[in-house]
């Protein structure tokens, strides 16, 4: 099994997702749960980015003097990168709403423990 940069970063991404799921499912503190959720999002983004990576390639920006053909054959693949730009913002916005709800719930209930607030 040969490990190169792409495979290693794919594995890092999956590891981040697993750590995040573990935190979100098993930790009791709501803030830590949300931190875990942030890691899941990061992991999936990293996964997408490593898909667009091309070993020995160049950045996807055509500098002056680059022949179009040569550039197209050597540049990294742009579609996953564009998807990640969208997905980062989506993750951050849902995070903000969740933290807002947690703050209000703390004011009401005086606790940020999931078993106390969410368990009925």
């Amino acid at each position: 099994m040969i490990i190169d940069v792409q495979l290693a970063s794919l594995f890092t991404a999956v590891a981040l997702v697993v750590i995040g799921i573990f935190a979100a499912v098993f930790l009791d503190n709501l803030i830590k749960k949300v931190i875990g959720l942030a890691f899941i999002g990061d992991g999936v983004n990293l996964f997408l980015i490593s898909m667009g990576y091309k070993a020995g390639g160049i950045v996807y920006i055509q500098l002056p003097g680059m022949a179009a053909d040569w550039f197209a054959q050597n540049s990294a693949y742009p579609l996953p990168f564009a998807l990640v730009l969208t997905s980062i913002v989506i993750g951050a916005s849902t995070m903000a709403v969740m933290l807002g709800i947690i703050i209000v719930l703390y004011k009401k209930r005086g606790s940020i423990s999931a078993s106390k607030i969410l368990g009925e």
Partner: peptide, 29 residues
């Protein structure tokens, strides 16, 4: 998955995109 990655449509973006603007990601976005 590592062995199976196929860029597909990204080839097309790379070839056609150079006619539009220099930064491929901005074009896609």
């Amino acid at each position: 998955f590592k062995q199976l990655i196929y860029p597909g449509i990204s080839y097309l973006y790379n070839y056609v995109g150079t006619n539009i603007a220099p930064n491929m990601v901005t074009i896609v976005v």
